[in-house]
């Protein structure tokens, strides 16, 4: 579904990505783990081309999309749930979601997507007329995820969705991610620092450190390899 080859990028003169390569296969949950400053968020931004790639390739469904502008990538079915709560605090939950269906393609399926989101997050249905800024942290994260679901994605990239949430909500978020895979059939690239929870949900794991991929494997293998987990993940 998504294939990244020796991607390079950075900010100003500082290079952040040192040729990581990875692959996300259709219908899987692929986790990208690593400590702070490893370049995980930069990788996602570069994949979407909101940070310009310096070199390397990004393939989406076999097509070279390395330099395709972000908005066109969203149109093609790639979605990014950015880190932190990038929602519109002065709009209601419903208005936030409706904004997600901005593209014509998404607008055509608006009511259908809305039903889907409300079944996934019944709490958002209850709160649809509340200002998004007044919701709890966990609910705000639900709105951000839901808004990206409204764009009708096939691949969804989540940037630290459990960040700053209470433990109970963290497990709720991961439950949702699994539902997105099993119930909706989405392909998921998950960037996380919460190692345990991610290892429980993911099919395949990449470990990133200082801008490049240091290890990869199916989840069971990574879990077993004490070397990897203790060196890079501190588990």
């Amino acid at each position: 579904m998504l294939k990244i080859e020796k991607l390079e990028s950075g900010y100003g003169a500082m290079q952040v990505l040192w040729q990581p390569s990875l692959e996300v296969s259709r219908g899987s949950i692929t986790a990208l783990l690593g400590p702070n400053g490893a370049g995980k968020s930069t990788l996602l931004s570069t994949v979407l081309n909101s940070v310009k790639p310096w070199g390397g390739k990004v393939y989406y469904k076999g097509e070279d999309v390395t330099y395709t502008p972000s908005h066109k990538k969203v149109h093609k079915g790639m979605a990014l749930v950015p880190e932190g709560k990038h929602l519109f605090p002065n709009m209601t939950v419903y208005e936030n979601l409706a904004m997600g269906a901005y593209l014509d393609k998404a607008l055509a399926h608006k009511s259908e997507s809305l039903d889907l989101v409300y079944t996934l997050f019944p709490r958002l249905k209850e709160r649809h007329s509340q200002m998004a800024g007044l919701l709890s942290g966990g609910e705000q994260q639900m709105v951000t995820i839901s808004r990206s679901l409204m764009t009708k994605p096939e691949l969804i990239m989540l940037d630290e969705p459990s960040q700053g949430l209470a433990p109970k909500l963290v497990s709720e978020v991961f439950e949702t991610i699994r539902k997105m895979k099993y119930d909706i059939g989405l392909t998921i690239l998950l960037v996380e620092q919460n190692v345990d929870a991610s290892l429980d949900s993911a099919d395949y794991v990449y470990i990133m450190h200082e801008g490049s991929i240091k290890a990869e494997g199916v989840t069971e293998k990574i879990k077993e390899s004490k070397d990897i987990t203790s060196t890079y993940l501190g588990v």
């Binding site: 908005h71 990014l80 990038h86 002065n90 901005y102 593209l103 951000t144 764009t151």
Partner: peptide, 23 residues
């Protein structure tokens, strides 16, 4: 739709971008 796009980018440009808006 111009108005919606502008509102989105005024409130949060990063969010507008990931919604597929050519900011």
């Amino acid at each position: 739709k111009i108005g919606y796009a502008l509102t989105a980018l005024r409130e949060d440009e990063d969010a507008a971008k990931v919604m597929g808006i050519h900011v």
